[in-house]
Simulated scan of single mutants.
Amino acid sequence: MRLSVLDLTPVRSDQSTPDALAATLRLARIADDLGYSRYWVAEHHNVPSVAATSPAVLIAMIAAATSRMRVGSGGVMLPNHAPLAVAEQFALLEAAHPGRIDLGVGRAPGADPVASTVLRAGRGDLGNHALDAFPDNLSDVIALLGTAGVSVQLADGRYVLRATPHALTRPQVFMLGSSIDSARLAAEKGLPYVFGHHLFGEQTGEALDCYRSRFVPSELAAEPAAFLTVNIVVAETHQEATALILPHLHLQSRAGTGHPPGPLTLVEDAERVALTPQQQRIAQGELERAVVGTPDQALAQLQELGHRFGVDELMLNPVASARLGTDPAGAPGRESTLQLLAEAARQ
């Protein structure tokens, strides 16, 4: 079972956007050195705790700063973009870093309603009915990434549309989701499927069973390939791991009860805040779905997850915050999560 990294480029209360980007680049280099298979970045808009707004830009930075692992999106939220624009971005990334680029595609907005409206402004029906158009738009992206381009029949003849003038290879395309519908679509398209277990864990088994039972082989995948994402914090002691995940739990509990979003707090600040009973229930659910503990405990939890759901790869979202006095340009809790886990896996 392979291990990879999902990074939302979190922004702590002690960080600026440049600090958060510096921490992500440092974490990516560490993951590359430690042997992780992939490093994916997300797409979120107008979220104070997330700096990952443009996956293509971040992928270019990370791929240039690393040398071995695959780098990709987890994911590009296709309803926000024209298919040709996405295909062009990832065709160029693949040309610059052949054999190292992944395009993970999702259909969630990744934004609040206002930000979504602004993102899709001027796109007519495609903007208004982006979710309905998603399956066709996904097919368009896949076709446009082909090395031969797409031949379009016009009234006066055929027109060839290419994402880049002379592609030699294409990025690997993945379908992202957290529902039965996304699993069914991934199976119909013959795509590898990544289930967002770090977001919702209620339908994980059902969605993966649906994907495998309905899978139709394609030129992109001859057989089903299922990945799982999971939030994780690893520390030398279980107590420290529990402390480092507390700000993340508070962030999710605030979001789940309609409170204004904010940056990820420091551990000491989170420890001073009392949650409401409803927020405590949300936080507890997040904690139960996450992997938290010492290296041996975390490795055992990951092995159990992999065995239970039969997945080919686990994508780890290191959600540790930091303590007061931490260098803003670093993320020692996230770094040690990857380092300690890699050491435990080698033993």
Rank of each mutant, 00 (worst) to 15 (best):
5 V>G: 06
5 V>K: 00
9 T>M: 09
16 S>A: 01
18 P>V: 07
20 A>E: 05
23 A>R: 00
28 A>Y: 00
34 L>K: 07
37 S>H: 15
47 V>N: 02
47 V>G: 03
47 V>M: 00
49 S>G: 02
49 S>H: 09
53 T>W: 05
58 L>P: 00
63 A>W: 01
63 A>M: 06
64 A>R: 05
71 V>K: 03
72 G>R: 04
73 S>C: 09
74 G>L: 11
76 V>S: 04
77 M>W: 02
84 L>H: 13
86 V>T: 10
87 A>V: 06
91 A>R: 05
93 L>N: 01
101 I>D: 11
109 P>E: 04
110 G>L: 06
117 T>M: 12
121 A>G: 04
125 D>Q: 13
125 D>N: 11
126 L>G: 05
129 H>C: 10
138 L>M: 14
139 S>T: 10
139 S>W: 04
141 V>M: 02
145 L>Y: 02
148 A>D: 15
150 V>W: 00
153 Q>E: 15
155 A>G: 06
170 R>F: 03
171 P>D: 05
173 V>A: 07
174 F>D: 05
175 M>I: 03
176 L>Y: 03
180 I>K: 11
186 A>I: 01
186 A>T: 02
187 A>M: 07
190 G>C: 05
192 P>C: 07
193 Y>M: 02
206 E>G: 13
216 V>M: 14
218 S>Y: 10
219 E>S: 12
219 E>F: 07
223 E>S: 15
223 E>G: 13
224 P>T: 08
227 F>D: 14
230 V>W: 14
230 V>R: 14
237 T>S: 14
241 A>Q: 06
242 T>M: 13
242 T>H: 03
249 L>I: 06
249 L>Q: 02
250 H>F: 01
252 Q>T: 08
256 G>P: 14
262 G>K: 09
262 G>H: 09
263 P>T: 08
273 V>L: 10
278 Q>E: 15
280 Q>D: 14
280 Q>H: 13
283 A>N: 00
289 R>P: 06
289 R>A: 12
292 V>P: 11
293 G>V: 09
297 Q>I: 04
298 A>L: 03
309 F>M: 03
309 F>N: 06
314 L>F: 02
315 M>Y: 06
316 L>H: 08
319 V>C: 11
320 A>V: 07
325 G>P: 01
332 P>S: 12
333 G>M: 01
334 R>T: 09
335 E>L: 12
337 T>M: 10
339 Q>M: 10
342 A>C: 05
347 Q>D: 14
